[in-house]
Amino acid sequence: MIDLGPHATFIIAAYAIVSLVTIGLVGVTISNVFRQARRLERLEAERKTGA
């Protein structure tokens, strides 16, 4: 790792926050994709069986 100088804390904090938010955004988005897909599947199955 290179030397980030006297302001390393700020640089690391900036990258840490951005990575956390970005990864969180990706995670929430992907989990929503699957959640809605499962929900649709369940509802479609219910309609077919006529529940």
Binding site: D3, L4, G5, P6, H7, A8, F10, I11, A14, Y15
Partner: peptide, 8 residues
């Protein structure tokens, strides 16, 4: 000018 903080 900005030093290492340019990386932000």
């Amino acid at each position: 000018q900005m030093g290492e903080t340019v990386r932000i």
